[in-house]
């Protein structure tokens, strides 16, 4: 029980970035346990994926050729069977939306503890120390686990594995029980289209829950107009119906990289930051000096947006 089994992620024909990051995370763990790093590649064009994933540090790649797209029952069955075959110490999965659709089921089925959304992992082979955030990123915690475990990793926390590896690539003959498959994907849909493409904007004036009420949104629109900028937002603003879906920045919205991103009353939750951390210059206006957005901001104003925003608008009128 020293090996590590890492599960890769793909969608609609493409491997997702976290698949390469999980190789790095898995390799680090395997180095500490002194074991091998196994990758599982389940569904889709598995042979193509396996070639691409054969990077430095991978010892073995197990492909399960079953269906095109993700199905959580197929994943759960295949991973459980791989676990029985390989007896790894750790099963590592991405903390993606699909990862969260199977990893907890795998853990429960195998009677293993699970720790999700980790940003740091350390082990002496027996005790796992997992670092993760709580309270929307306000604090970090260390979580201790004895023995085997299922772990999910946050994306963009580990570097992508590079180079070419010399892993063995084998088809794993998983016995998928079709009768136990109780969900069917019938299609995909892109949402958030429309007249405005916030990913094209040079300057984004982005509004979050700090704005409090729909009636206050014009404050932000006035500023955007004065700056000749575009309005975007965090998720709750769109959830509330105060702005359309195509304005949402983040994991489930758009990824933006403007010259200047002004985050107004936005705390900087990981799912928001995923969509804007590549911006050239980030300015945060927030009453909370400890808000996680401060960690990635270049400039900050620790003050009330209802005072600062009108003053700024006035500057440019």
């Amino acid at each position: 029980m020293t090996d590590v089994l890492a599960v890769t992620d793909h969608r609609r024909g493409d491997l997702r970035d976290v698949s390469y990051e999980i190789i790095t995370a898995g390799r680090e763990l395997a180095d500490e346990t002194g074991g091998n790093l196994h990758l599982a590649v389940i569904s889709g064009t598995v042979d193509e994926f396996a070639d691409d994933l054969n990077r430095e540090g991978v010892d073995a790649i197990h492909t399960v050729d079953h269906g095109e797209e993700f199905n959580h029952d197929v994943y759960t069955q295949a991973i459980s069977q791989l676990y029985d075959e390989l007896a790894p110490q750790y099963v590592v999965a991405p903390n993606s939306v699909n990862g969260l659709d199977y990893a907890p089921a795998v853990a429960n089925e195998l009677d293993l503890p699970i720790v999700t959304d980790t940003i740091g992992l350390e082990t002496d082979g027996e005790t796992l120390l997992a670092t993760r955030e709580m309270y929307g990123g306000k604090v970090e915690t260390t979580n201790e686990l004895e023995g085997a475990a299922v772990v999910t990793i946050r994306s963009a926390e580990w570097p992508k594995a590079e180079g070419t590896g010399d892993a063995s690539i084998e088809a794993f003959d998983a016995e998928i029980d079709e009768d136990a498959i109780g969900s069917t994907v019938t299609g995909f849909e892109e949402v958030g289209g429309g007249d405005v493409d916030i990913s094209e904007a040079d300057v984004l004036v982005s509004v979050g829950r700090g704005i409090e009420e729909e009636d206050n949104i014009p404050l932000i629109e006035d500023l955007a107009e004065a700056l000749d900028a575009t309005v975007s937002s965090s998720r709750p603003i769109v959830d509330n119906g105060w702005l359309p879906k195509n304005r949402q920045v983040g994991q489930s919205g758009k990824v933006v990289t403007p010259d200047v991103y002004i985050a107004i009353g936005i705390s900087g939750a990981v799912q928001h930051v995923a969509g804007m951390k590549g911006s050239d210059t980030i300015v945060a206006i927030n009453t909370d000096p400890n808000a996680p957005i401060m960690d990635i901001a270049d400039y900050a104003i620790h003050d009330d947006l209802f005072d600062v925003v009108p003053a700024l608008t006035e500057e440019f009128q």
Partner: peptide, 14 residues
């Protein structure tokens, strides 16, 4: 199911 990047998966669940 809301996936990443503005993609939604349409799924039938028993």
């Amino acid at each position: 199911r809301e996936l990443e990047g503005g993609v939604e998966e349409l799924t039938e669940i028993d």
